[in-house]
Design a protein around this nucleic acid. Structure first.
Lengths: 286, 286
DNA sequence: TTGCTCCTCACGTCACGTGAGGTGGC
DNA sequence: TTGCTCCTCACGTCACGTGAGGTGGC
């Protein structure tokens, strides 16, 4: 019989932890003195505690450990280990993904550059999409959006996600701008619509959200371009203009109220540009 | 100006989280109505929140994020990202190590085998070591331990870790057993002693702790051998017998009281055998 | 007016760590 | 007897989530 301090030294687990395992029923002392409350452990309990420590190091919760080590449940332990194996593979993949992102951010934030735009991931989505060459960004684009919203509304495919405009033209020549109007739709609604396609996301996109009328866009787009260049990035896909909150004059759409702005001052718009690093080498070696 | 619900939808962050960020001072609303307490956000706050989300996804704590995003502290962000990069590399290495261990445990616990012994890591250590060929495990080994403990005590190098005996003989022929007596010593004490060496650890060792006299050892060692075989392991190094608590008859040693057993019934001993998997292929593919 | 949104407590989560304040055992 | 060990609350950590109970605004 070992007092808690002796057992603690033997297995190199703190007294507090042993008391906690007693409290949650994970490892009960062999005997507890009724008068003093002193806990007495047996050396026979060492293997069980070693299992607990080993499983905890693998990332199991104490509840999972209790279940896995239940008497007569060896097969549970086996399946729990298999599940954990899968989870570990995912964690490792996540780690690589984070490493990629931290490297991207290191490139995007050379010490001293102000934090105006953000590099982040933009998810892939499914959208009702109309691509067209237009001669101006005003009325023709608006007409395309009204047409698209009408089709989506008719199919009851509208979801509460912001519509956006893709600029396929790398250079904005004054005439003949190649744009694509996109309305995100629900996956299950796709069969009811023609002209639905998957719009690719971007693992790194420079993003800039602003409030107010579209008159601000050109200046902000120029600022974003400068920021991209200063951050060591190169543009890797079409610019996307995302309309988070927009004109209520377009009444044909059935939209939730929070999507509708009463005046252009209340518009909320986001510019997103897919990026890749100019120099593909990692920022620092360890 | 956006009410919290609108801002929440815009940035896809829950209202609860936004309130929490307000409470901890990470992202204060642009304006708070004094009468109603309503929070109002501006679209200008979107980039900051996107930074917060991006850094949180990388594993930063909210405190670290607040520091990293402090005005005029762009260099802090840069150094924080560099630190995080190093931490991520470590996390990935840990993930691989855990994966290796979970595979080892999957091999060590075929469904249905009872959990008597444990596969775990045994750390490397520095020890005062006397290697000798003896003709029995009784008196000659005891004499070696007394000699070693005396030397260690004289150099004041004793630390509170269990001494152990290594069996270099793969087969225990009746005569001429090649054993090594080891007393762990502190790193900084090494120069004051001759016969100190680094004793290698094992990344996977079959471990079995028991209480009582050494008469139990042969039966338990045989059981351990059977368990190893059933688990698909092969012995990969010398057996180690670790004396966690042992005879008080050896009075020459200056030991903490919890190391000394009054009777052989109170001895606590552990058998450890380095192992490798018989079949080096992973247990399961995902 | 109804229903929706917003508010502020207060408590729960997870695996313990950190005292406070008191007692048993050599 | 002193000092060491052990005990039981009770609260803190971290980043929110989950109600409870109540109110503002269209």
């Amino acid at each position: 019989m070992l007092k808690i301090g002796d057992f603690s030294r033997l297995v190199r687990v703190t007294i507090k932890t042993l008391r906690h395992y007693d409290a949650v029923g994970l490892l009960r002392p062999d005997r507890v003195d009724a008068a003093t409350g002193y806990r007495y452990y047996s050396a026979m309990q060492v293997p069980r505690l070693q299992w607990i420590v080993a499983l905890k190091d693998l990332g199991f919760s104490l509840d999972e450990i209790r279940d896995s080590l239940a008497d007569g449940q060896e097969s549970r332990l086996h399946t729990a280990l298999l599940r954990r194996r899968g989870a570990l593979l995912e964690e490792i993949a996540d780690g690589h993904e984070r490493l990629r992102r931290v490297d991207a951010m290191l490139r995007g934030t050379p010490a001293g550059v102000s934090v105006a735009a953000v590099v982040r991931q933009v998810p892939e989505c499914q959208a009702y999409a109309l691509r067209c060459t237009v001669d101006s960004l005003g009325q023709p684009v608006e007409a395309l959006f009204e047409q698209a919203e009408a089709a989506v509304a008719k199919a009851q495919a509208r979801i509460d996600r912001s519509p956006f405009l893709l600029f396929h033209d790398p250079e904005h020549r004054d005439r003949d701008i190649d744009v694509e109007v996109c309305i995100p739709v629900a996956d299950e609604a796709a069969p009811r619509l023609t002209a639905v396609r998957r719009v690719a996301g971007a693992s790194d996109a420079g993003c800039l959200t602003y409030e107010g009328s579209y008159a601000r866009t050109p200046a902000l787009a120029a600022g974003l371009a400068a920021w991209i260049d200063a951050g060591g990035y190169v543009i890797a896909g079409p610019l996307r203009e995302v309309y988070h909150r927009f004109g209520a004059d377009q009444r044909g759409y059935r939209l939730p109220a929070h999507r509708i702005a009463a005046t252009p001052d209340d518009y909320i718009t986001e510019l997103q540009i897919p990026l890749v690093r100019r120099d593909p080498a990692p920022a620092t070696e360890t």
